[in-house]
Design a protein around this nucleic acid. Sequence first.
RNA 1: GGCAUCGUGGCCGAGUGGCUAGGCGCCGGUCUGCAAAACCGUUUACUCCGGUUCGAAUCCGGACGAUGCCUCCA
Length: 492
Amino acid sequence: MKLFKNQKLTLYNSFSKKKEIFTPIHDGFIGMYVCGPTVYSNVHLGNCRTFLSFDLVFRYLKHLGYKVRYVRNITDAGHLENDADSGEDRIAKKARSEKIEPMEVVQNYTIDFHQTMEKFNALPPSIEPTATGHIIEQIGIIQEILKNGFAYEKNGSVYFDVLKFNETHHYGKLSGRNLEDMIANSRELEGQSDKKNPQDFALWKKAEPKHIMRWPSPWSDGFPGWHLECTAMSTKYLGEHFDIHGGGMDLKFPHHECEIAQSEAFCNQNPVNYWMHANMLTLNGQKMAKSTGNNILPNELFTGDNTILSKPFSPTVTKFFMYQAHYRSILDFSSDALEAAEKGYNRMKEAFKNLNTLPTGKDSTMDISAWKQSCYDAMNDDFNSPILIAQLFEAAKFINSVKDGKASITPSDLEILKTAIHSFVFEVLGLQEESISDTNSTKLSDTVALLINLRKEARENKDFATSDKIRDELTAIGIQLKDGKDGTTFSL
RNA sequence: GGCAUCGUGGCCGAGUGGCUAGGCGCCGGUCUGCAAAACCGUUUACUCCGGUUCGAAUCCGGACGAUGCCUCCA
C-alpha cells in the first residue's frame, strides 16, 4: 500500500493562488520540472535555497510512494545581459575575462553546482538536461510557433508576438499582469529594436560576429531565447502537459509567463497543473544577487571565510536553518539566526541519539501514532517543514523525558517512533550526519581525551587549580569540555 | 508608476475567526567542588485606523512600512 493512498497532499498553486489537493495526471506517477541555474559563476546560497526547497518536495513525494521524474535543467547557452538587441552574453563575457572557452566556463560552474548540492545532501534530479544539448528541439518549437502565427522573423531573429497571442489567449495569467497596463507603462526610449512591441520576447537571436556561442538555424547563425529551453526540455521529457513546475519566485515573470505562452502557442495546451514558487533568501534585508555582490557562497559559509558570520556553519545546519522557514516565505540570513538554528539542531540530534538505548515500559505516555500523523499533516499542508521540525522537537522532548524516567514508551511504540524519525529526518528532510573521521581529527580527540583524563585525576585529588586551568585553557583554544554523568565529552 | 507578497513577542519563524506553534535568548530549577554543558519548567505577540461578527492578530476597507517582479537573475 502506497502512502499516498492515505495521505492527502495539498500544495499551494501559484497559478490559482490557492492551496489545492494534489492529484497527479497519471495515478502514482509525477512529472516535475524545476528551472536550474545559469552556470556562468559560482552558485550562491540564495540559489541553493530554491533547489533545497524542491529537494524537499522531491524527497517527500518519493517518500509517499510516487514514482517521480524530476527534471532540472542547466542553462549553459549564453543569454544576453539585458533586453537590448545588442550586448554581451554572460558566459562569453566570463570566458573572455578568464581567457577560457565558453564551454570551460560552463563545465567549471556545473561541477561547482553539483559539488555544492552534494554537500547539502540534495538528491540529483532524474534528468538534468542542458540548453545547448537541445538546440534542435528548440528550433523545432520555433518553427511550430511560426507556423501557428504567434511569432515573426526579423533580420535573422525570431520574436514571440505577444499582442497577437493575447488576442486568442491570455498573456499574464500566471503573474496577474495585464497586457494593456504593461503597454501603458512601458515608455521605453525606443532604440533600433527589431521587435514590434516591447513586450515581445526572443525565440531566436541572430548572433553578432563577436558572439562565440552560436548555432545554425533556418533564420541565422544564432542562439535560442532564454525562455525557450525550458519549454523544449520539459516537453521532451515530461510531455506537453505535466504535474509540477517549480522555480524561484523571481522567475515567475517574465520567464514562467513566457513558458506558458510558448507552450500554448506551440501545442495549444496549458503545460502545467501546479506551479510552485520558492521564495528568496535575503541578506541584510535584500535579495541575494550575483550582480550586486549582496550574497554569500556556500563554501564561504562552510569554511567561515567571510565577513558576515561569526563562525563557520555546516551544510546540514544551513539546510536545517532554511527548513525552519516555509519555502514560500522570504527568509533573511544572519549569524544570529543561524546560530540559533545550530543550537536547536544539535539538541534535537542529541535527543535522537538516545533512541537506541531508550528503556521501554508497559504503556506510552505519549500518543505516538497521533504524533506520527501530525508529522504527515505538516508535510501534507504544502510541505510545511517548520511545523514538521516543531513536531520533531516535541519528539525530542519526549525522548529526553523517557530517558529521565519521567515518561514511558512501549516497545512497539518505540519502533514506530524510531522508524518515523528516521524517515522524516533522513529521507524527507535529508539531514545527513557529517562524519569527519580523518586521521588528524582522531589525533585531536585522542589528545583532548588525554587532557580530560589529567583533569579528572586532578579533580579526584581536589586539585581544582589544575583542573580549572586545563578547562579554561582549552576553552581559550576553542574546545569546550562538557561534564556529564557518564564522564566528560568535548566539542569544538 | 503597475503587478505581487508580506508586516507576529528580545531575535528567528509557524499558524488559526474563540482553544499550545517551535527554535534561540532571558529567568527559575535539577546536576556540579565551582562553572559550563545537558535536561526540565517559565516569560513577553500579532504595524496603525476603521468595518463585519457574540467574538478578529486571523475576514473586508484604508493608512503607513518592507521586499520581489516589471532588464539577466533561484
